[in-house]
């Protein structure tokens, strides 16, 4: 019995020190102003000054757009992948870019999108002229979607692979067309994968701050950018923590909305 207790000690310490304590601390810190006085002002300021609410709505809107773009690209990808022979290999190829450092992928786009970069060179070649690509909202969303695509493809792919093929055959046998089969059988059955994908993309999209700086040129302020700025630039940890608490609440809302009740019951 003592051995069992020894197993759990380091893990329990980790849970207490690095899971519970930091969450409690960020909540606690949100009640302090920049001078270290206990106050509710951070929340009052967040709710009353339009700046923060607008920033939050903006961040949610961009996260929504990024998620939508990623889903539109990823679902057909997962669908086609799933019908290929050697599909596991192709899936591995989709996942491979996630193993490459995020910063490097973002850095590549700085070169690709620059005023005299490759994309502009191509546009000029096509006679479309050169455009300001870097530091625009579109480039920000494109790069964010680029990075998130594999995280959306993976759960959808796994879900599609689990669908019993006899259900699809039954649908065809009963006279359904391709489109009807997709809409009435495959799409509803793949919903858990889609939800898992949305969850995997939406939350990081709310908190991105590196891409907004490098690609978005600080035009888009997400919740993550705001937190980073309050903690590391203006040193107003109280307000930063307040935005952090808002982000945590947003996370719970998304998890609740996309939550799969079945998963809770213990698949194991």
């Amino acid at each position: 019995m003592r051995q069992k207790a020894m197993f759990i000690v380091p893990y329990a310490l980790w849970i207490i020190l690095f899971v519970i304590a930091p969450l409690v601390l960020i909540f606690y810190q949100s009640f302090f102003n920049i001078n270290g006085q206990l106050t509710l002002n951070n929340y009052a300021e967040y709710l009353t000054s339009g700046v923060y609410l607008k920033m939050t709505l903006n961040s949610v809107w961009y996260a929504f757009l990024i998620t939508l773009v990623t889903l539109v690209i990823s679902y057909p990808t997962a669908y086609v992948l799933n019908r290929l022979p050697n599909k596991q290999f192709w899936l591995l190829l989709v996942i491979l870019p996630t193993w490459i450092n995020l910063l490097l992928k973002t850095y590549a786009f700085i070169g690709l999108f620059s005023r005299t970069g490759t994309i502009n060179g191509f546009l000029q070649f096509m006679g479309l002229g050169s455009h300001q690509l870097l530091f625009t909202d579109t480039s920000f969303m494109f790069v964010a979607a680029y990075i998130e695509i594999p995280f959306m493809v993976l759960p959808i792919f796994n879900n599609l692979a689990e669908i019993n093929p006899s259900l699809i055959n039954a649908s065809y046998d009963l006279g359904a067309t391709h489109w009807q089969t997709f809409r009435r059988v495959i799409w509803p059955l793949s919903m858990p994968g889609v939800k898992a994908g949305i969850q995997a993309v939406f939350i990081p999209s709310l908190s991105l701050f590196m891409i907004t700086r490098l690609i978005g040129g600080n035009r888009v302020i997400t919740l993550g950018t705001a937190i980073e700025e309050h903690f590391l630039t203006t040193q107003n940890w109280g307000m930063g923590s307040t935005i952090g608490v808002v982000l945590i609440i947003a996370m719970f809302i998304i998890m609740f909305m996309t939550g799969d009740k079945k998963q809770k019951g213990g698949r194991h």
Binding site: S207, F209, S241
Partner: peptide
């Protein structure tokens, strides 16, 4: 948890 929350906390 988003990375910024982990980092900040």
């Amino acid at each position: 948890s988003p990375d910024v929350i982990i980092g900040a906390s």
